[in-house]
Amino acid sequence: MVELLYFAWLRERIGVPREQVESTAATVADLVEELKTRDPRYAAAFADLSAVRVALDQDLSDFSAPLAGVREVAFFPPMTGG
């Protein structure tokens, strides 16, 4: 079981701020592919991955990173703080 979090327009497009999913995906990219086949909302949110950033257990990471042992995966657009 992994906890997925979505922020900003990804949250709006997917329609929930967080959810728990069962997944056997080996990497973040695999997880995204899995989600895209589940529902058109995910396909829309993840259509352009160059506009999506990912954090694993609250540390910035990338789509090729392995998911073994990861509890929390967050997807969000490029940050606009400051």
Partner: peptide, 25 residues
């Protein structure tokens, strides 16, 4: 300042009378 802008997980949304738009990085 430079790092807070693009490495701290904040997202800005501008609210107007006609709607709202996420600020692009």
């Amino acid at each position: 300042m430079d790092y807070l802008k693009s490495r701290a997980p904040f997202w800005k949304k501008e609210i107007t009378a006609t709607g709202a738009a996420w600020v692009e990085a």
